[in-house]
Design a protein around this nucleic acid. Sequence first.
DNA 1: GTTACTTATTAAACGCGTTTAATAAGTGTG
DNA 2: CACACTTATTAAACGCGTTTAATAAGTAAC
Lengths: 345, 345
Amino acid sequence: MVSDIRLTSQHTKSEMIRCIRSALLEQGSATKVELSHNLQISFPTISKFLKQMEDRGEVTTIGLDESSGGRRAIRYTYRPDYMLGLAIFLEKSETNYTVFNCLGEVIEQGNTHSMLEQDVLHLTTFIENIRNAYPNINAVAIGVPGAVNNGKIFLIPGYENYHNLDLKKHIEEQLSIPTVVENDMNAAVIGYMAQRKIGDNISLFYLYLGQNGPGAGIVINGEIVRGKTFFSGEVSFVPQYDDRNFLQALTNGNGGEMSIVPMEKKVDAISRLVASITSILNPHYIIFGDDEIETLMLHQIAERSATYVPKEHLPELAASDLKHDYLNGLQCLGLSLLISQQIDD
Amino acid sequence: MVSDIRLTSQHTKSEMIRCIRSALLEQGSATKVELSHNLQISFPTISKFLKQMEDRGEVTTIGLDESSGGRRAIRYTYRPDYMLGLAIFLEKSETNYTVFNCLGEVIEQGNTHSMLEQDVLHLTTFIENIRNAYPNINAVAIGVPGAVNNGKIFLIPGYENYHNLDLKKHIEEQLSIPTVVENDMNAAVIGYMAQRKIGDNISLFYLYLGQNGPGAGIVINGEIVRGKTFFSGEVSFVPQYDDRNFLQALTNGNGGEMSIVPMEKKVDAISRLVASITSILNPHYIIFGDDEIETLMLHQIAERSATYVPKEHLPELAASDLKHDYLNGLQCLGLSLLISQQIDD
DNA sequence: GTTACTTATTAAACGCGTTTAATAAGTGTG
DNA sequence: CACACTTATTAAACGCGTTTAATAAGTAAC
């Protein structure tokens, strides 16, 4: 016997606006009734907020719906350029950036010299300049090759200027733009999941096997796994053979070129890693962020993994474009800052 | 420039009651001002709910505080026996149960014949009988040696009667008592964390190395990891040596007694597992749910693990009493049902 | 013991989202 | 083209937690 059907699951003002924004962006357009239905917010409340948003130019009407038997409804849509986001990823050799709108469309894309070895001031003035060109940039997402927690860079080997720097706080204080900072692999896994519209309580292992040594971004139950000392995903160290761990198996133990090691040995090492991950975490997906891995190799890995772990428990294996996912992840992070933007009347 | 300091972070009625209950139970006793402060709920609201709870006998006053310079405050406390919980764990050889109050104190403890091979009806009448003896039992927590998701038993090898049964739904419909069903290792990890008051965003690996083969309960970012096919924690299959996985390393590959394998070989296998877990998940703790593991062995494992993974990233290793944690976990699960109990005016 | 000053509690006014009633704007039908 | 019947929108009444003001109950000082 449930006492009450709906216990006024109230939201706060900014939560509601966030919901309206994301619903409008997701659905492309909507009427007030549709929003009220989908978001479980009462019609009058939707009406009130939508009017405010229309007044400040955030949404526009795009005409009337066909009548479904009664009065025709007004259809609203979000203006994608009302706010823009800036995504930057700092890499060893260069700095890439994109300016994007609320639909994720890229307005401008470019790259410049690496900033990791420079002073942080370089970065802030760079952002400031872009913002001067696009004044309605309202969020910055920065990707770095290092361990990040809540905007603070804890560990970034080789780049002293950024070590132990709370980059989020720094940018927000200097430029007063909402900012998010994230590790590269974590951004990639976020981007991949968003793109494939992978649900919320899913576990996913995003594995990179590139030049800088293996690394992974891990999402479990829809949340990024950072670990006690930000060491999660450092799969190089997984012991796999009598006298070799994963990295040694890939590089023949001498830190040499990966290409020297014969294909089948690599496949076995990767398959053993897949088996370990499966029997420990049993995720839904393992994604290889590398174009080099072709479908053939994926099949071989799947087959060989099944010799270590019952087949039905193995995750779906797939390859994906790391750089693309990385950028997409940063845009997602920026976008979520945009749509939760407070409005100051 | 933040526009508003406190955007009326409103809660629903039942959430508030839940908060008040848990605060009173946690702190032992409290005044209205203290509750209002700790829970961030306004004084009048606290006052209103506390009065209702007092009226129905859920809380009582235990006198006045000493004056701190002004009017003396009334101190309230929760009546621990106002609601009781029932924890049951179904095992192969027997069925254990405890009746406990809101403070976690055990009112009655006992065991009876195994019910896993019987019909489920056996279990329901068993619960019904206990409830007749303690009419204010308001929650049941059931632990089973199988894969459970949201009360439904997906996989429970050897016990056909329980396979694919939504036990939670079944009990709730038959007896109308709020019910929670959980896997044994998951209950244990919950119990361990509650007992040690381990924070909310912590990752913990609870490992069991007993007769029925290794198994683990995993919590990451404060949430149970179940996996795509409820296979998470099945660490037996982790490949560790050229030709042996973890289980084979422990049992010498012939499924024989663990005791045959020399101590140091076991230590190495466990250490390799610790290293794998660390480099994949980097959890805060790995707990061994086994009394057999003595402090000496823990030290050896810690030392040996450090040969595979940099020491600073290793988790804290500890041993704990599985059965105790298991029971405690069930009580926690039951308790959280109790304190979120709806009141029907 | 009266005064000044605390602190706890109660009572009234307010804000805000919701529910409900009222109105507006369509459709098809005889 | 009035009529019954939809559906969208607006206006008013309500519920509930909060903020603010008023009152009660205590302490210390003179």
